[in-house]
């Protein structure tokens, strides 16, 4: 693809960029799950091997061996879970002030991610209201830089989220017509449970959905192939979700991948942002995240809820009331 920008504007070093054709908003690549990748196979192997080994133990040896093995397995998972929790990032240096603006740069540091080899976000979009809120949040935090890749995960049967993501991408490519817009793709996964699906078949579709989530988390973007970028874009750095059930499944899968050493611990950081509609109580997904502790950062958007739950306070920006006093 020919770069529209002159040579000096291209970033130096080994980072070469594939420039997108940004003119149409519908030009974003949509990835759908075709086959299994090696992570899915590895996890399936785990899923198949563990029960068979356990059953074999039960048949060949005795109950005590069986119990011991189960205990060791559970102990390993629990220990890894705790280790990952201990290694969580502490409080971040610059919490935004309540009116939405950060304090002046003298009193708070501004993170600089433009020199990093890769910046890879994965946003899990859910149904209409959740997606709109998340797109808003992304807009308030967006900064164009060439080393950035964004992946939007949408679920099958959700028509509105794709349009919202494309609208945002159209805005981004209008603001950054050059390589600074970074690269983007949309990943489609199966939704965990259809609207009127029976509870009997739900576990199976959840598993399928989880398999797709593994692909979404581990399949590297075609615009950032390992050949050119040396596995820097192999796994997303930050997973952002704000409430849909598929977001929980993706986060759970991310945590499991880290527990079994399938992904390095410095990737797949989960950020859960509770919906703005919740000011005093948590939603069901929020309770799940808080209870399981799989989110690296648990954020709420109201000060009171932050005090109640101990979550990070991430105030919503752009609220301009018309009614003073």
């Amino acid at each position: 693809m020919a770069a529209p920008e002159p040579e000096p504007q291209m970033p130096k070093g080994d980072v070469q960029l594939q420039t997108r054709n940004n003119t149409q908003p519908g030009a974003i690549e949509v990835v759908e799950v075709r086959g299994d990748d090696h992570h899915t196979l590895a996890l399936l192997l785990w899923l198949l091997l563990t029960p068979s080994v356990l059953m074999g133990t039960l048949l060949v040896l005795s109950w005590s061996w069986f119990t011991a093995l189960v205990a060791v397995l559970l102990g390993f998972v629990f220990f890894r879970h705790l280790t990952l929790r201990w290694e969580r990032p502490g409080p971040l240096p610059a919490p935004p002030s309540p009116d939405g603006t950060r304090p002046r740069s003298n009193s708070s540091p501004v993170p600089d991610t433009s020199t990093l080899p890769a910046v890879y976000f994965l946003y899990v979009l859910g149904s209409g209201g959740h997606s709109a809120e998340l797109i808003d949040t992304i807009t308030s935090q967006f900064k164009g830089q060439p080393n950035q890749h964004r992946r939007y995960v949408i679920t099958s049967g959700d028509s509105s989220s794709k349009g919202m993501a494309e609208k945002l991408e159209a805005r981004i490519s209008r603001a950054y017509p050059d390589a600074k817009a970074g690269t983007v793709d949309i990943f489609k996964i199966r939704r965990a449970r259809d609207v009127h699906q029976s509870l009997l078949t739900a576990p199976w579709t959840c598993l399928v959905s989880a398999g797709h989530a593994i692909s979404a988390l581990t399949r590297e973007p075609t615009s950032r192939s390992a050949k050119r970028f040396g596995y820097q874009f192999r796994y997303p750095h930050v997973i952002v979700t704000n409430g849909p059930a598929s977001g929980f499944i993706v986060s759970l899968v991310a945590h499991v991948l880290k527990v079994f050493y399938l992904v390095p611990k410095n990737r797949l950081k989960v950020v859960y942002i509770e919906s703005w509609a919740r000011s005093r109580t948590l939603s069901l997904t929020g309770k799940l995240f808080l209870w399981t502790g799989i989110a690296d950062k648990f954020c709420v958007q109201h000060e009171r809820l932050a005090r109640l739950t101990g979550g990070e306070y991430l105030p919503r920006v752009g609220i301009k009331p018309a009614l003073p006093g």
Partner: peptide, 20 residues
């Protein structure tokens, strides 16, 4: 859009930095 740098929320950027 893009949001002026002085008003931009940098939460996600910090999260990326924790990976490095």
């Amino acid at each position: 859009f893009p949001v002026p740098e002085s008003e931009r929320v940098t939460f996600f950027d910090w999260m990326v930095l924790t990976c490095y």
